[in-house]
Computed example of a mutant assay.
Amino acid sequence: MTARILVTGGTGTLGQLVVPRLTQAARDVRVLSRSAREIDGVEVVVGDLATGQGVDKAFDGVEVVVHCAGSAKGDDEKARQVVKAAVPAGVRHIVNVSVVGADTLPVVSGLDRAMFGYFAAKRGAEVAIEQAGVGWSNLRATQFHDLAFSVAEQVAKSPVVPAPSGFKVQPVDPAAVADRLVELALGTPQGQVADVAGPRTYTFKEMVGIYLRAAGKRRLMLPLWMPGQAAAAYRAGANLSSGQGTGRSWEEFVAAKVAR
């Protein structure tokens, strides 16, 4: 009998790619979702990691957890809820997805915390899982194509686009991240594994420019100097991976997205 695998955030951008890959591998899959959903061949349990409501039921009888549930803030608390439920349930392996820069981007206070607190929360989630006493694998990924597209689309609504000076991004196709998470879930705990990142690095201006050309828009780009320690780390490339990139390029993703 195969191990039951729970996917938190199973209906989100990443989770909805992970779940079918696990079912295609003939695995017994359960999804934890904040709202009732129907997914073919998958048990869905309603629960909320932000409050802990319904979470224990989702973990009952589970051996492996793929923790994909994430948001703009509070990911450290969500991870603590995962650990709180996983330990008494006898989970043997937690596969966590984090972000490149979680362990290197400093976050202090004020503007830094408002803009880069996400990285601190992700690191807090990593620590909670590392210290749980359960086998774990932690995969850090660069920015998803979907997020980069949303940012480009949003800033392009203005006739003048602020472009943070020196900021670079390395967007990655979520499908490549999902592939690696499934590979980890079907194996033994690996601890910290190599990052997964996109095949190319772009300046913020280049990233938005690719979107503008594909969308047939013209905008004025205004260089913007961002103060603070975290911004300095961002300019130094703390959010970038030094490993080999993979998956579709940003150009390919944007072209396909705009065509749809």
Rank of each mutant, 00 (worst) to 15 (best):
M1S: 15
T2G: 13
V7Y: 12
V7M: 09
T13C: 07
Q16E: 15
R21A: 15
Q24N: 11
Q24P: 00
A26Q: 11
R30W: 11
L32F: 11
S33C: 12
S35E: 12
R37E: 14
G41H: 12
G47K: 09
A50R: 14
T51V: 08
T51H: 07
Q53C: 02
D56C: 04
D56R: 11
K57D: 15
F59Y: 14
F59C: 11
E63M: 13
E63F: 01
V64H: 10
V65D: 06
C68N: 10
G74T: 04
D76S: 05
A85V: 14
V100H: 11
A102Y: 02
D103Q: 15
G110I: 10
D112K: 08
F116P: 00
G124D: 04
A128P: 03
A132R: 09
W136L: 04
W136R: 02
S137G: 01
N138T: 13
T142Q: 02
S150V: 11
K157L: 15
P162L: 00
A163Q: 08
S165M: 12
G166V: 07
V169Y: 11
V169L: 14
Q170F: 07
R180D: 06
R180C: 05
E183D: 14
Q190P: 03
Q192K: 07
A194G: 03
R200C: 01
R200F: 05
Y202V: 07
F204G: 03
G209P: 10
K217G: 05
R219S: 08
P223W: 05
P227W: 14
Y234F: 15
A236T: 03
N239S: 10
V254G: 08
A255H: 13
A256G: 14
